[in-house]
């Protein structure tokens, strides 16, 4: 009996370890490719993960934002437009929690791309930011060429969006929050309209920050 209890204890300890191990690393998502390269005269197969390419947009303050502006940052990206009557208010209600939790964290940012740049000028975005109550540089609302935003969204973040005059607001889009790491790799997709998924994202951001910090320490 005592032995059994001991075995059970060991089993549980291992299970706890395993569980913790899984928790401490987020998967790397998106397309991937095997690449053969020569390291020290030996052929090795390496995996190349999909990354978000460079971009050039303008934020609500009129500053030009490129990937360089996000250097060393983990970030969450989403797509919205200020006159959106359907899912955007709930997405940004949920995103506000993320903003509040991480606004004083130096290596984290939120970037929201408008998919209606014709209406959402820098002035309109600034007004929206003020009304939403966001300040400083931890949440940028980005505006740029419509083609650029759509290409980045559809091809690289893999989020669907399109103009459709038949739906209220005139645009169809998905409410994904996409979590991107410091190496520009996609590490998570979360339904921005669901409180519980956003709560999970907040946890995952903490996990990802810890992971990156250990990588740096090594």
């Amino acid at each position: 009996m005592k032995n059994l209890a001991g075995a059970l204890f060991l089993l549980l300890t291992f299970a706890a370890c395993n569980f913790k191990g899984e928790q401490s690393k987020l998967p790397i998502l998106g397309r991937r490719q095997a690449v053969t390269k020569t390291v020290n005269g030996k052929e090795v197969v390496d995996t190349v993960y999909q990354t978000i390419p460079d971009f050039k947009f303008v934020n609500q303050y009129g500053d030009t934002i490129t990937q360089n502006s996000l250097k060393g940052d983990i970030y969450v990206a989403d797509f919205f437009f200020t006159t959106c009557p359907s899912i955007c208010p709930i997405m940004h209600r949920n995103m506000l929690k993320v903003y509040e939790d991480f606004k004083n964290v130096p290596d984290f940012k939120i970037i929201s791309h408008t998919i209606d740049p014709k209406h959402d000028s820098v002035t309109v975005l600034k007004k929206y930011a003020d009304k939403l109550g966001i300040k400083g540089d931890s949440w940028w609302l980005l505006q740029g060429k419509k083609e650029d935003t759509y290409e980045l969204g559809q091809k690289h973040y893999l989020v669907a969006m399109s103009q459709d005059d038949g739906t209220p607001g005139g645009y169809v889009h998905q409410g994904w929050f996409v979590l991107v790491d410091k190496q520009h790799r996609i590490r998570g997709y979360y339904d921005g309209t669901k409180e519980e998924e956003v709560a999970k994202m907040i946890n995952d951001i903490k996990t990802l920050r810890a992971e990156v910090n250990t990588e740096i320490a090594q």
């Binding site: 359907s86 208010p89 709930i90 940004h92 209600r93 929206y128 009304k131 939403l132 109550g133 309209t193």
Partner: peptide, 16 residues
């Protein structure tokens, strides 16, 4: 209404 005005009718900051 709920997407904009919220679960508890709280609105959204100064937007709604």
């Amino acid at each position: 209404c709920q997407n904009c005005h919220g679960n508890n009718g709280e609105g959204l900051t100064s937007l709604i």
